[in-house]
Simulated scan of single mutants.
Amino acid sequence: MTETTVAGVLAELAALEDPKARAVNERHGDDHGVNLGKLRALAKQLKTQQDLARELWATGDTAARLLALLICRPKAFERDELDAMLREARVPKVHDWLVNYVVKKNPAAEELRLAWFADPDPVVASAGWALTTERVAKKPGGLDLEQLLDVIEARMKDAPDRLQWAMNHCLAQIGIDHPAHRARALQIGERLEVLKDYPTPPNCTSPYAPIWITEMVSRQQA
C-alpha cells in the first residue's frame, strides 16, 4: 500500500474525531475520539487488507491500530510479530481487540498463551490469562484447573488492575463452566472480595465472581 493510502485512511479517521466520543473513551483509558460503530463501518468499506493493516499499526495511532485489527488477516501474523504487537499494545481497547480478534484466531495462540501467562509485565500476563480463560471455556482438556485456582487465590488480590481483571474472569469462567470446581471458585471469590464493590449498571451482571458465577449458572439452568 502507498503512503497516500495510509494518509487517506488517517484523514478519514481524523474526520470521524468526536470530542464526546473521546471523553467517553478516555474515561476507559483509550486515547482516541472515534465512535466504534463508525470505525467498524469504515473497516467494512476497506475490507481485509493485511498490508494496510500492518502500516496502520505502525503509525502508533490508537484509532488506526483499532482499524488495523478489524481489516487484518489474523492467521497471517507470525508468532514473534504478535508478541511484539502485544507488548506495544498499552491502550486497553487495542490490547483487548488484539487478543480477542487476532491472537485467538492465530495458529500460535497456545504458544503465546504459555509465553505470556507468566510474563513479569502484568499487562502482557493479562493477555496470557485471557487466552487461558478462552481455553477454560472452550478447550479445557490439558489444563490443571486446581492449579489455576491456586494461583488465583494466591495472587489475584494484589495483582495490578488489568491482570486482576483477567484473573477474576478466569476464576468466574472456571466456576461457571466446571461444576466440580464451582464451590472452590465461589469460596475464593467470597474470601478475596475482588471487584465486590464495582459499580455495575442496571441489567448488567456484576464482575464480582460469586455474583457472576451464580447469575450465569442460573441462566444455564433456566
Rank of each mutant, 00 (worst) to 15 (best):
D83E: 14
A185R: 02
G33A: 12
H32P: 00
S218H: 04
K93M: 13
A15Y: 05
D31F: 05
A58G: 03
E153V: 02
L36K: 08
R65M: 07
H28E: 15
Q164V: 02
L195K: 12
Q164L: 04
A14E: 15
A68N: 06
W165I: 04
D61C: 05
L70R: 13
G175F: 00
N25Y: 03
T62L: 07
H28W: 13
V6D: 00
D161N: 09
K138W: 11
R191D: 12
G60T: 05
L16C: 12
P201K: 13
V91I: 10
G189Q: 10
D51F: 00
A115C: 03
R22I: 08
A125Q: 10
T133K: 10
D144C: 08
K138M: 09
Q49F: 03
F117M: 12
E215T: 14
I211Q: 10
R27T: 12
V94Q: 08
L13Y: 06
T214M: 10
M167L: 06
I152M: 08
K20T: 13
L70A: 09
A11M: 08
K38H: 11
F77R: 00
V91P: 00
P179S: 13
T132C: 03
D31K: 11
A172W: 06
K157P: 00
K47W: 07
R191Q: 15
A127F: 00
Y101P: 00
Q50P: 11
L66Q: 07
L114T: 15
R191E: 15
G29K: 11
Y208H: 12
Q164Y: 03
L66N: 03
K104Q: 15
A89N: 08
G141M: 05
I71T: 04
R155D: 15
Q50W: 08
L39H: 06
P210Q: 06
D158P: 01
V91F: 00
L171D: 02
L112A: 02
K196A: 13
D31Y: 06
M167W: 05
A43L: 06
L114R: 15
V9Y: 00
A41F: 08
M216D: 07
H32L: 00
L131H: 03
Q147D: 08
Y198R: 14
R79K: 13
